[in-house]
Design a protein around this nucleic acid. Structure first.
Length: 422
DNA sequence: TCTGGGGTCCTAGGACCC
DNA sequence: TCTGGGGTCCTAGGACCC
């Protein structure tokens, strides 16, 4: 039987999370910033209306933010991740199959039963999520993921839809395609959109009717898939369990420019430790690691420098001391005293399930002992939720840590940060 | 008048997503 | 002075092989 895709997407997710705990923000312009309070990564509708773009550096819109008294928040990922989990638990009850697509989006898959009232179904989802979490969502329904995305996009923008759009009828589809610019199609980015526009293809409808050979030649197989999806032929299946990760990266910009080798090493050791935690939480080991450093690549005055070093481990490992040792060695080789560093990072690569890691005969590390130690540390850090256990190499004061000057409280995950009502 | 042909693997870079 | 972080997939080109 044919199935349908339902895309549920939280509206302005990070801002909406802040609003749940601060209702005074309702109907007011508000933004949430990236790490280091560097860029705008979420905007309320009111903030969008002020012309504040997605991803713009804060310093470029400072004037607007001040003039219109826009509420400004640093990212509070702990809060957003927890709110996301609550939303996903609710959505899971609405269909037999679900794909969690991102922190604020999920696809559901339904058998296409003619008697079902899909708009009513979408409204039930909206009401349930709103009532149980306080978060507003939009719902798009169609026969392919790309069309469901489009339906969701229109539902979000058009008040007439009341947040739900069902695009299963071809008359609605035609209309929706004709009002959607190619740049808004899922899978069409700015580069591709510009190329399409130059060829006179402006709307999703134009793209759906485009010559397949030409699309294949200019945009490859993914271009063709998008055209098929617009025609209602599904090329992207629901992925209930995400495929195994191919790499794990931890990288951060520093809170200030870092010039000393010691600080650069501390920060990178901390990233290596965090990468190790992530790796083990997914039951994986890594056979390779890449460490990179960079200065401010936007700067025109200072020397710009990016460099990376890759290491292969003799045997796949998930041992944090091993990661830290290798990271520190790499950093020493990458370091340049004449540079002011902005960012470093650690990528773990060539991942395999931990239990499949081959043992070598002359292994300098006692693997059983290391496994026990890692397990103990991870469970303590998880349970105590203050990450009290750190490696000495990460340093104590950590002056390089990114700044979050306007972070709200972690209302849902910390006893000492509960919402207070007076 | 004209360089042989075809396969595989790896890597860097580009484009996209949230 | 101030510009996030974490991913995936595809393609083209080079190296190498027979």
């Amino acid at each position: 039987m044919k199935s349908l895709f339902v895309l549920i997407d939280c509206n302005n997710f990070y801002v909406s999370c802040e609003r749940v705990f601060n209702p005074r923000l309702e109907n007011k312009p508000a933004v949430v910033l990236s790490n280091n309070d560097g860029c705008v990564v979420a905007r309320s509708n009111e903030a969008k209306a002020l012309g504040i773009g997605m991803g713009v550096p804060v310093f470029q819109v400072e004037e607007t933010l001040r003039k219109h008294h826009v509420a400004i928040y640093s990212s509070n990922y702990t809060l957003y991740a927890d709110m996301s989990a609550r939303v996903m638990r609710i959505l899971a009850e609405f269909a037999p199959e679900m794909e969690v697509y991102s922190i604020d989006e999920a696809f559901l898959s339904l058998p296409a039963l003619p008697e079902r009232d899909l708009v009513d179904y979408g409204q039930q989802i909206r009401q349930q999520v709103k009532q149980w979490t306080g978060l507003p969502v939009s719902v798009g329904i169609a026969s392919t993921k790309t069309l469901a995305k489009m339906a969701n996009h229109i539902a979000k923008k058009s008040p007439k839809t009341h947040g739900v759009l069902d695009l299963t009828s071809s008359a609605y589809q035609q209309k929706a395609l004709s009002i959607t610019e190619v740049s808004k199609i899922w899978g069409v980015g700015s580069k591709t959109a510009r190329k399409l526009n130059r060829a006179g293809i402006d709307t999703a409808l134009d793209l759906r009717e485009a010559n397949e050979q030409w699309i294949r030649q200019k945009f490859g197989v993914n271009g063709v898939r998008t055209v098929y999806e617009l025609r209602g032929e599904s090329c992207y299946a629901l992925e209930e369990s995400p495929p195994a990760k191919k790499g794990i990266t931890v990288s951060r910009s520093f809170g200030h420019r870092v010039q000393s080798l010691k600080e650069l090493q501390e920060a990178t050791a901390a990233y290596a430790a965090r990468a190790g935690e992530k790796l083990r939480s997914q039951g994986l080991s890594a056979a390779g690691m890449t460490v990179f450093v960079m200065t401010n690549l936007f700067s025109e005055r200072e020397p710009r420098y990016y460099n990376a070093r890759s290491i292969q481990f003799p045997t796949a490992t998930n041992d944090t001391p091993e990661f830290i040792r290798s990271a520190l060695q790499a950093i020493e080789l990458l370091y340049r005293p004449d540079c002011r560093f902005k960012k470093s990072g650690v990528m773990l690569t060539d991942l395999i399930p931990a239990e499949k890691a081959q043992r070598t005969f002359f292994d300098p590390i006692n693997r059983e002992k290391s496994q026990r130690l890692m397990k103990t540390l991870d469970s303590l850090n998880l349970r105590l939720s203050l990450n009290p256990l750190r490696w000495a190499a990460e340093g104590i004061d950590q002056p390089w840590r990114a700044k979050f000057n306007q972070r709200s409280l972690r209302y849902t995950t910390r006893w000492d940060e509960l919402l207070e009502v007076s």
